[in-house]
Every structure is written in C-alpha cells, then in structure tokens.
Nucleic acid binder design. Structure first.
Length: 856
RNA sequence: GGGCGCGUAGCUCAGUUGGUUAGAGCGCUGCCCUUACAAGGCAGAUGUCGGGGGUUCGAGUCCCUCCGCGCCCACCA
C-alpha cells in the first residue's frame, strides 16, 4: 500500500471533531456483527481462558455494584483475549425462586391461586391494582416467564452498553431447561456414587407463601414482645417450675426444657421430666451450655421449632432418649424421631388440626398466641391440671421486651396490612442433600478441606483475603455429623433427563441457597454433558477464573468447590477474584433496602461507559470502594484526551514507508514505553488491572504534556524529513501501543481511534511486546529534555507571560551525563520552548536558569 | 461474642522485601486562547501516615495496645 493512498485513507477517517457521543451503541452493534467476542470452539484447552461468571439475580434491581464488579472481570477477559487466548465468557441469569414470585406479584398486581382454571386470554392491567388479582397457576407462570425475559433483557442491555465482552450466544438462565437438566443430572451422579442423602432437618417456613425459604431470604427485625410465664409440673409431683417465654404459642410443640449445665437451680433435675401445662405432655429436663441462666427464669422450653437455637438443642439431643420423648410428645406432629438404630424416621406430615405451631395452621401464629394465652384454648386436654385451670397468662411483673426475630424479607405486596409475625421453623424432610451437610463425607471434608483446597490451591485475588481462615473455615464450617440415609430408591424417578418443574409452585422445596443451581455454574455454563458441541466442557473446565463477592465465600464458593470435587475430582477453577463493595459517601454498603442506590444506566449515559469503567477499574481488586462521580469525570476526560491526542499524533503527517525511529529522544520514549508494557503485563498477570491502568494513565498524560510538545515541531517537518520520519514513526508506534494498553479499560474510545487507521478490532489485536519497542534508547535523554522544557514553562508561568514568549537565554547546569543527553535532544528542546540561546555548564545536578525576552 | 479487613492531604486513593525530603488525581490558588484538546493547558500550595507504646542504625511499612469504621459468622427463652 502506497503512502499516498494510506494518507488519503487516514485523512478521510480521522474526524475533525472527535467525539464520544453515540459511541457505545455503534460499537456494540459492530462487535456483534463481527463476532468480535465469539468463543473459538476449535481452541484447545491450553488456548482457552474460561470465566465462570456469577449470574446476577435479575429479579433484583440494576445497580452500580453490577457495573463495578463485572467491569473488573471484563478488563481481565479483554487482556486475556489480546494475549491470544480464546476467552470463554458466558453470562447467566439467576431468576429462580421466591424473589421472582414476589416481583411478579408486585409488578403485575396478581397472586397465584392454584384452584383457579387457566385463562388463556388473561392480560394483567396496565397499572397493578391495589387488590391483587387472583390468577391460575399456569397464568402466573406465564407472567413469571414474561417478566424474567424482560428483566434479563434489561441486564443484557446494561452489560452491552457497559461494553462487557461477553459471548452473548452463551447465555443461560438458572431456570431454563438446560440448567435444570444439568442440575438434575449432577444430582443423579451424586446419587449413583452415594454422595446424596435424605436427611431429617428443619426448614425455615414462610407463612405467607407457604414455602420453605433460604436463610438468605431472612432478615432480623426487632419485635415487641412480652414474657409469658408458663407453669410446668414436675412429673414426680414436687410442684411447678416456671418458664418465661415470648413464644407461648409454641407450647404445643415443646419437647424439652433446657437449663445451663452449671445452673444450681436445675442441675439436680436433669434427667427428670415435667408435664407441659395445657397439653399435659411429659418432656425431659436437659442441660445445655447455650441456655443462659440470666434470661427469664434460667430454664427454657425447647420447641420444634421456634428459632434456630431450638434446632441446635433438638439436634444436640444428649444421652437421654429424647427421641422417645419426642415421639410421645408429638404423636402426629413429631418430626419423626429416630428409629432403633438412631437413624431418623421418615417425616409423617402432621394432620391439619394438629399443626398448632406448624406451617399452614389456621389463623397463623397470632391466633396460636391468643389461644395459648388462654383467651381461646384450643381444647382441654384430659387430666390437665393447671393452676387456676388455665395456663398462667401474661405476667405483668416482667416488663415488655424487644427481641429480634428472623423473618422473611418483606416485599411491598406481602399481604399489606397484616403483620405476619415470623418465619416458622417447620420440621420437614430436607431435600436430598449432598453429604456436604452431613455424614461421612462431611466429616472427611472437615478434615480434608485444606488438603482439597491446597492441593491445587485456587489463587485468590487479592492475596491478602486468602487468610487461611477464610478458605479453611469455608470448608469446615458446617461440619456436623448428622444421620442420613441413602436415596437410591429415588434415583430411577429422576433418570432420563429433566423432570417437570414442581407441579405446584408453592411448597416447592428450597435448599439452603448454596445447594441449588448456583453451585453448578461451571457445569451449566460449560454445557456439561450437553450434546451438540462435542467436548466443549473439556475445553473450558476447570475454569481459569471465578469472580465473586467475598461475602459468599462460605456459601457459593465452597459449594461450587465441593460439587466439582465430587463430580470431577478437581477444583472448578484455578483463580478466584474477590470483588469489593460499593460504598455510598457515608461509607455504608450500597443496597436497595437503604435506598441509596444509583441507577447505572443514567451514569453510563451521563459520563459514557468508558468513564464509568475507568472509575470501576481504578479500584484495587477486592477493595471496598466509594461511589465517586468525580472519578467518572476524570475517566471521561481521559477518553476525550485519548481521541484528541490520537488525532494530533495521526495528523502530523505520514512517515515514509521505510521510516526508522532514529532520534535519541524518540528511542528514549519508546524505551520508557517498553518498561510500561512490562509493568502493565506483570500487573495483569497478577490480576491487578488497577495498577496497569494507573501506570498506563500516568505514562499517557506525561506523553501528552511533554513528549508531544517536545516533538511537535519536528513531526511537522521543521527539522527535515529524516527527523520528522523518526517522530512520526515513534508516534504511530506509541499510539498503537497505548491504545492496546488502554483497550481493556476504555474499549469504546480505543476502538474508535483504532478504526481511524488500523484494520480489524483493537480488542482482537495482540497485546504489545516490550521487546518490539526497544531500540536501545536512553531514558535519561527523555528526562533531561522534558526537564528543560518544563523549567522554561515554569519560568514563563511565574512571569505571568504567555508560553509562546521566547526564552532569550537558557543556562543549563548538569552532570556530564546530563549535558551529553541534552545535546541529543537539543534541537527539540530549543524549538518547543522557543529558546533563542542555550548554554551549558558542568554542575552537580540539573539546574535551568531562564531569561525571557523583554518584549510583550 | 468470634473472625477478617480498613484508618495516609479538604475528598477519593497509591505507597511492593522496613531505606533519601511520604506520592497521584480531584478540589483549591495563580497564570496562559499554545497550529490535538478552553468541557483545555501550564504551574503552585496542601500531611501529628487514627492515638499510645515497642523492635531497629532507620517504621506509613514489623510487634503490642487502645479508639473509630466496615463485612462475615454466631447469638437472640
């Protein structure tokens, strides 16, 4: 290609007024059309860089936290792509479960009534009505699908505008068929290997939605309450013992009394029994260290289940044959007890009228509370003898208390006007669980976790978060031997691929979050055992990177490791990058409930995506970061500067075809640039994108302020063709390199400039090589040259004169080395600083004395 | 209550194995329309490195302690 054609082409393509306006949709379209980020399925595992992307919860709102952490991952993805890797970068949407149901109810103003028939013509009103419209279950599911599709589109739009280099042909949703199929397949494998067990365990129960809820769905809320004094009767007839409780309605579910082992008041009674008031059930008195002698009367009733301590106590059942008592105490209502060999029996569902404190009982807990207080006793058990023939009601001697209760997070549509007191703990057969939660493997893991994690230790970024505590405890935290039984009999029912989703949306068993699809994102994202694409999974697994929040190490990270360990005998990824929080100006964690979130789309529109990405990637990995629009302004300025500086560098003129970088200061600049490339590369290899950005940015501003000024005249040809060619070639080389270094951070602006003069996409170009830039330049030449220029500018500024004003005489003192370096850049210095006469003298260090011309 | 982390300029943050006079950007002050950029440029001022103690020739950096803040876990009769 001849230089004239080249120059003409260039002139056409460099705009007179470069702008960032409208840049995002334009390049997003082009990248999609060109398949810029499409995964190369022919790549071998060694050529692949695979990312296990955390699926955002689409039923939640978009917020800057998404922008923040996903940008970090994208910067790494873009770097790896330019390093020549085939980047596997899928995206998933988490749209399972209760949040989706809730959002559908709020959004459309409907509620699901399974008794209604399907209405094929149903359309929700434009505005959600005050009174939720009851609709059939199929109608409700249709709305769920409609809304999640909308939500997913909103997320994709955001992420596209943000410039995430995701391969959008690899999108999955945790609710879609593939995810369910893989999830079930993985579970079958667990079954086949005997890694899954059915286990008796309590589940948190949402009274409103009549479904089990995950712990993560709960929040603490202060509840006003009062102690109610209940009189239990010693079975040996020696009188009463009083219990203070805030939850008298749970009396029917009382299975034991518990006091602290050292409590002298009750120590002698351990092993004996009492009869409950009202129900006359005989329960044991036990000792447990969690009982607090200071609270109430120092002895508490254990119910199945009022709170999580009850669970502990119930599980901890000591040597006393509590299971036996359990059986009697809760004939129909019991959770099952243990069989003769100590294994839990199958749960027998309680009959409705017996669910005094269980899920779904009439009137809810409030009614139960009324009854137990004596206003409306449910019935009079035979032989019940209580003081005054009734349970001791509210005891006014105890002041009202405020105590926190765990309860489901409340959405706006949660039956307005009705205070639903609490999440119940209902004994249920826990959904089949991995041994992770109990049994031999759990014990093995509890001893092995460090070995497991250490053997092929995932590198955790940033390393300081790696504190052995985190990972070790993540692995061993929930070690608790528990009875279990294999589920082989169930296996055949699941065989043959995905089963139907729960026929009834309600009462769908929910796991404790970390056992659901989310622990299988590597398998789902990688099409594990999904036909049609040969060995895709083998090409991406184990993944190279898993980014995630540090708050869910113990849940998500650990469960992903466990499942990969069982399934593949390896870690699911080799690196984990932990991202920090976004903090509002008061240094609080930004969250929806606090109402301090900022809409990310508006930010992207106001500052531009590159600017927001700049703010995001300025934050060190894993560091909590303040939301700072100031940084976005800086980012925008940087992006604009990049356009303008590029326009200038490309506009000085075309280097002749065989141009060489010959001038000393040009070679010196390239030498410094080579150092920068090495530093940025090292930083990226250590996942420290922020350092790479910071160093690149610092170099760039110095490059603009000093190098461009220094060589400007020469590049325009003031010193002849040879020196001009050297400057132009150096400028082109530097610009190309800087665009590449900035590309992971400012994908739009760099691509824009790239398109002015280079073929293809900067994002599929190769990462710069330091060696290709080195020409034996001496950085000292650069330092001295820019130092003298800067001194001349300072003199002019201090004299309040224009920078154009001539320097009549510049006297430079310096070491022999410095003076020798100065001679190599003398012509550029004299020209750029407009120096009439420059003299040199030997000295200890570089000192510049400047005399300005008198004329104004 | 236990664990992890943070505290450096008015603000947001760097500061690597302990090593000259602790840095950057924003903001602030002043100057300059300079043939890429005035939504710009050039230059300047700005510190009890949270407090105290210790180790060391030398501490922002290592140790102890206290104060303040954040998160996770636990507790919540």
């Amino acid at each position: 290609m001849s230089s004239t054609i080249d120059a003409a082409a260039r002139a056409r393509r460099v705009p007179d007024k470069p702008t960032l306006d409208g840049i995002e949709p334009r390049w997003d379209r082009t990248w999609t059309e060109q398949g810029t980020y499409r995964f190369d399925r022919s790549a071998t595992r060694a050529q692949v860089y695979a990312i296990d992307t955390p699926p955002p919860t689409v039923s939640g709102s978009l917020h800057v936290g998404h922008v923040f952490s996903y940008t970090h991952t994208d910067a790494i993805a873009r770097y790896q792509r330019m390093r020549g890797k085939a980047v596997y970068y899928p995206m998933g949407w988490d749209d399972n479960g209760l949040p989706t149901e809730r959002r559908v109810q709020n959004y459309f103003g409907v509620r699901c009534d399974p008794s209604l028939p399907y209405d094929p013509g149903f359309e929700p009103p434009a505005q959600p009505p005050k009174q939720p419209i009851p609709i059939s279950r199929p109608n409700f599911i249709e709305l769920c699908e409609r809304l999640t599709a909308t939500d997913e589109q909103a997320f994709e739009d955001l992420f596209r505008r943000l410039g995430l280099s995701v391969d959008w042909s690899l999108v999955y949703a945790t609710i879609d068929e593939r995810s369910r199929r893989i999830s079930q397949r993985a579970f079958l494998e667990n079954l086949a290997r005997g890694e899954a067990y059915q286990q008796l365990a309590p589940t948190l129960w949402d009274v409103d939605f009549r479904t089990a809820v995950a712990q993560a769905e709960l929040e603490d809320r202060e509840q006003p309450g009062a102690y109610h004094k209940l009189a239990f009767h010693w079975a040996d007839g020696s009188g009463d013992v009083h219990i203070d409780t805030t939850r008298p309605e749970l009396l029917a579910a009382c299975v034991a009394l518990v006091a602290h082992p050292d409590d002298a008041r009750y120590r002698d009674r351990f092993g004996s029994t009492v009869r409950t008031p009202l129900f006359g059930v005989e329960v044991p008195v036990l000792g447990h260290h969690l009982a607090d002698p200071e609270k109430g009367t120092g002895i508490a009733m254990v119910c199945t289940f009022g709170d999580l301590t009850d669970v502990t106590w119930w599980r901890a059942r000591p040597a006393v044959a509590l299971d036996h008592r359990l059986g009697r105490a809760h004939h129909r209502h019991r959770p099952g007890g243990d069989d003769r060999r100590g294994r839990p029996r199958r749960l027998r569902p309680a009959r409705r009228q017996d669910r005094q404190a269980g899920p779904g009982h009439r009137g809810g807990p409030a009614a139960g509370q009324r009854r137990a207080r004596g206003r409306a006793p449910p019935h009079h058990p035979p032989g019940q003898v209580l003081r005054e023939g009734r349970p001791a009601a509210r005891d006014r001697r105890h002041p009202p208390v405020v105590h926190p209760q765990r309860r489901p997070r409340r959405g706006p549509a949660r039956r307005p006007g009705r205070a639903r007191p609490t999440a119940h703990l209902a004994p249920r057969v826990h959904a089949p669980s991995l041994r992770e939660l109990g049994g031999r493997a759990q014990r093995r893991l509890a001893h092995q976790p460090t070995a497991l994690l250490r053997r092929a230790h995932p590198a955790v970024v940033p390393p300081r978060r790696r504190g052995p505590a985190d990972l070790r405890r993540a692995a061993g935290a929930r070690a608790r031997p528990a009875a279990h039984r294999p589920l082989h009999r169930r296996a055949h029912r699941l065989r043959g691929g995905p089963t139907q989703p729960a026929r009834r949306l309600r009462r769908r068993p929910r796991h404790h979050g970390h056992l659901g699809h989310l622990s299988l994102t590597p398998q789902i994202g990688g099409y594990w055992h999904e036909g049609g694409d040969g060995h895709l999974f083998d090409r991406v697994f184990p993944y190279d990177l898993r980014p995630q929040g540090h708050d869910i190490i113990r849940t998500w990270l650990f469960s992903t490791v466990v499942r990969a360990h069982f399934e593949h005998g390896s870690l699911p990824w080799t690196n984990t990058a932990l991202s920090g929080w976004i903090l509002d100006p008061d240094r609080k964690k930004m969250s929806k409930s606090k109402g301090n979130v900022v809409t990310p789309i508006a930010l992207l529109e106001q500052y531009g995506s590159d600017a927001v990405r700049y703010w995001s990637t300025s934050a060190r990995p894993g560091v909590d970061t303040a939301f700072d629009e100031g940084q976005m302004k800086i980012g925008r300025r940087l992006a604009i500067k990049l356009l303008n500086a590029s326009k200038f560098a490309l506009g000085t003129g075309e280097a002749s075809p065989r141009a060489e970088v010959t001038e000393a200061v040009d070679r010196a600049m390239l030498e410094r640039l080579a150092d920068l490339v090495e530093e940025a590369t090292t930083a990226f290899e250590g996942y420290d994108y922020a350092r790479a950005l910071e160093r690149t940015e610092a170099f760039f501003w110095d490059f603009c302020d000093n190098y461009l000024e220094l060589v400007k005249g020469r590049a325009y040809g003031s010193q002849g063709d040879g020196p001009a060619d050297s400057a132009r070639a150096a400028l082109a080389l530097a610009l190309e390199t800087l665009l590449k270094l900035f590309a992971p951070f400012l994908p739009f602006a760099t691509e824009e400039v790239w398109s002015w003069w280079q073929p293809g996409s900067v994002h599929t170009s190769t990462w710069p090589q330091a060696a290709a830039l080195r020409r034996g330049g001496d950085p000292e030449v650069y330092r001295v040259g820019t130092g003298v220029l800067s001194a001349a500018r300072r003199a002019k500024t201090e004299a309040r004169r224009s920078l154009k004003v001539p320097v009549e005489l510049a006297q430079v003192a310096g070491t022999a080395t410095e003076l020798a370096a100065l001679e190599l850049v003398r012509a550029d210095v004299v020209e750029s600083a407009n120096i009439a006469a420059l003299t040199t003298a030997t000295g200890d260090e570089l000192v510049v004395a400047v005399r300005l011309a008198d004329d104004a």
